[in-house]
Computed example of a mutant assay.
Amino acid sequence: MARTRFIPDRGLTVRMATTMVLLALVYAAFVVALLWAGMPWWLVLLVVGGVALVQYFASDRIAMAALGAREVTPQQDPELHAVVDRLCALADMPKPKVAVAHTDVPNAFATGHSRGSTMVCVTTGLRRRLDNVELEAVLAHELSHVAHRDVAVMTVAAFLGIVAGFLVQAGTRFALLTGGGRSREGGPAPAVIALLVVVISAIVWALSFLLTRALSRYRELSADRAAAYLTARPSALSSALVKISGDMARIPTQDLRQVEPFNAFFFTPALSGKGVSLSALLSTHPPTEQRLAQLAEISRQLGRGA
């Protein structure tokens, strides 16, 4: 991570590096398998390369547009900028861009594929529900993601799953449309090739899904720790978590489903399972109870050190 006053997290660094290496191996095997299945090399290059470029360079703008967020200047929102300025000075880190999303869904997120494109965004619903101390704690959590550079890693890690998911849908439709006849050259039927692509893509999607979900859950716990130690107010982050989790149940399900695809980048998921269940194991975030327990332990440690 970049040099800041956020506590370093070797576990996060190791997990990010391991995830990227494993995904690179899966990615290489994915390309080879697609070529083996009979997919033209130019189509593989077009789909895989094209989606990679869009995901890396445009994912942040796509997310901002989908959530209706816009960048705000210090003149437009001096209060929000003052909080970010104070935290960046405390953490000794460059200040990212600041944005506001006009939605009642209470949340915050950080995005950006490079240092120059990083941005922290809060929703109007979040600001309406939290006091200044709680808002500062949530923004410290998001700035920790920026400092640890796990936003960029998650952006890259998500790309493989997007490609695989696209090929599963496209291959299924193609197989249904072409039927089971043999090709004109006497080789395998186009439908057979399409089904091979679907099977390969489904396996790759599942592997990338599990890898990125495991990394996502750990990075949220890491950001909670870093924010709690930086502000020395773990109780403020706990209070924000309780408020947001409780109020999320009162938001219309339709509104929550509209923002659910961006769960991996949110402070807390828009929709999530509770307790130890399959949905919790596959979630982008650890259970709220686990996050609160960690913050309670940090509070005890800070109390003993005082």
Rank of each mutant, 00 (worst) to 15 (best):
V120F: 05
L35P: 04
A33T: 06
L130H: 05
D60N: 15
V105N: 07
T124L: 12
A29I: 14
V21Y: 10
L34E: 07
D77C: 02
L126Y: 03
C121E: 00
H113W: 15
L22D: 08
V54K: 07
A63E: 11
A24P: 09
L53M: 13
G68C: 14
V54N: 07
Q76I: 06
L126G: 01
M93V: 09
F109V: 14
V83T: 15
V72H: 00
V120N: 02
A37G: 04
P40D: 12
E71W: 01
V84H: 01
V54D: 11
E79A: 14
C88H: 07
P74E: 04
L23N: 06
A58K: 12
T111E: 06
M119T: 15
V14Q: 12
A33N: 08
K97Q: 14
D92Y: 11
G68V: 09
A89G: 06
A52L: 06
L90F: 00
T73G: 03
R15D: 11
G50Y: 11
H113D: 07
D60S: 15
L80W: 06
Y56P: 00
A89N: 03
L34N: 07
S117K: 15
G49M: 04
V98I: 11
V21F: 14
P40K: 12
A69H: 03
F109T: 08
D77H: 00
L80Y: 08
Q75N: 09
A108G: 11
S59I: 02
V83P: 04
L34F: 09
A33W: 03
F57Y: 08
A89W: 02
M16R: 10
A24V: 12
R127D: 07
L34R: 08
W42S: 12
M20P: 05
R115S: 13
D92K: 15
W42R: 11
E79S: 08
T13L: 14
G68N: 11
A28D: 12
H113N: 10
L43P: 04
R115A: 13
V122W: 00
D85C: 01
R115V: 12
L43H: 06
M16N: 09
T118K: 10
V48C: 02
T123R: 00
L130K: 05
L22C: 14
P96T: 00
R127A: 10
L45W: 13
A69G: 06
T103P: 07
W41Y: 15
T124F: 10
T19I: 14
V31P: 05
V48H: 01
M64D: 03
V105P: 01
Y56I: 07
K97Y: 04
D60P: 13
S59G: 05
V14R: 15
A28V: 12
A82I: 03
T18Q: 13
E79H: 08
L126K: 03
A37T: 10
R129F: 11
F57W: 05
T18I: 15
L130M: 10
A101Y: 01
M64Q: 10
F57D: 03
S117N: 11
R86Q: 14
Y56C: 02
D60K: 13
D104N: 15
V122E: 02
